[in-house]
Computed example of a mutant assay.
Amino acid sequence: MKLARRLVLTTTALAAVTAGTLFSATIGQATTSKPADADTAAPTTPKAPDSLKVPDGNRLTGVFSAKGVQVYTCTDGAWKLLEPAATLSAKNDKSHRPVALHSRGPVWVSTVDGSAVNAAALATSPKPGTIPELLLQSTATRGTGVFAGVSYIQRLSTQGGVAPTTACTGTDQVSVPYSAIYTFYKPAK
């Protein structure tokens, strides 16, 4: 029953994000004019704190803006992160057409080619009034598309998404709108 409820929550949140009914904000100034896996000039990215720098030997291959929610659930009277639910779009796409979905794992799945990357957080950089920025390392990839071979991911330029500070009871859940810039890196050839 809990799994079905979570699936409905995630599906509902992603549908609302895709429809643009949850959150609308201008974030970051990163742009990319090439496909995320292009071997030409790398896209630009927001400045990352030193603690979130990607190790040498990796190249930037994708910059995406994300809009979605951080879903929190009540655990022992306190709000605990359950999962993110967000859509990613190419930073230069004015239509904000989704090109990837981001959810629990964390995992990013391309809606264009089906490739995916799972990752685990390596470092965090707190920001007042918003969820922290992150450096994540890939734990698994699948497919041959945009996320194939991804080694590192940064979550930058975060806005919103902070858990409520109020008390909670039972199995309450809440979705808090957030936005961020996600950058994807692959090993340099």
Rank of each mutant, 00 (worst) to 15 (best):
M1S: 12
L3I: 10
R6S: 09
A13R: 10
A15D: 08
A16V: 06
A16W: 10
T18E: 14
G20Q: 11
T21K: 09
T21P: 06
L22Q: 09
S24P: 02
S24Y: 01
A25H: 12
G28D: 11
A30R: 00
K34V: 15
P35G: 14
T40C: 08
A41W: 11
A42F: 04
A48H: 03
V54D: 06
N58S: 01
N58L: 01
N58I: 05
R59G: 03
L60H: 08
V63S: 00
F64Y: 15
S65K: 14
V71N: 05
Y72Q: 08
Y72K: 08
Y72L: 09
Y72R: 07
T73C: 09
C74P: 05
D76F: 14
G77K: 09
K80M: 14
L81H: 00
E83A: 08
A86N: 14
T87S: 14
T87L: 14
A90Y: 14
K94W: 13
K94P: 12
S95T: 15
A100E: 09
G105W: 05
V107Q: 08
V107A: 07
V107G: 05
W108C: 05
W108D: 05
V109G: 13
S110Y: 13
S110C: 12
T111C: 12
V112H: 06
S115T: 03
S115F: 13
N118D: 13
N118A: 15
A120K: 09
A121L: 13
S125K: 05
K127C: 00
P128D: 15
P128M: 11
G129L: 06
G129C: 06
I131S: 02
P132Y: 06
P132W: 04
E133H: 02
L134S: 04
T139P: 04
T139F: 02
T144D: 11
G145M: 14
V146W: 13
F147Q: 06
G149L: 00
S151W: 00
S151H: 00
L156Y: 14
T158N: 03
G161S: 07
G161P: 07
V162R: 08
A163C: 12
P164N: 01
T165K: 08
T165D: 06
T165F: 11
A167L: 10
T169S: 12
G170V: 07
Q173E: 15
Q173A: 15
V174W: 06
P177I: 00
P177V: 01
S179D: 11
A180M: 04
I181C: 05
I181A: 06
Y182C: 01
T183E: 06
F184N: 02
F184C: 01
Y185R: 03
Y185N: 01
K186W: 00
P187A: 05
A188S: 08
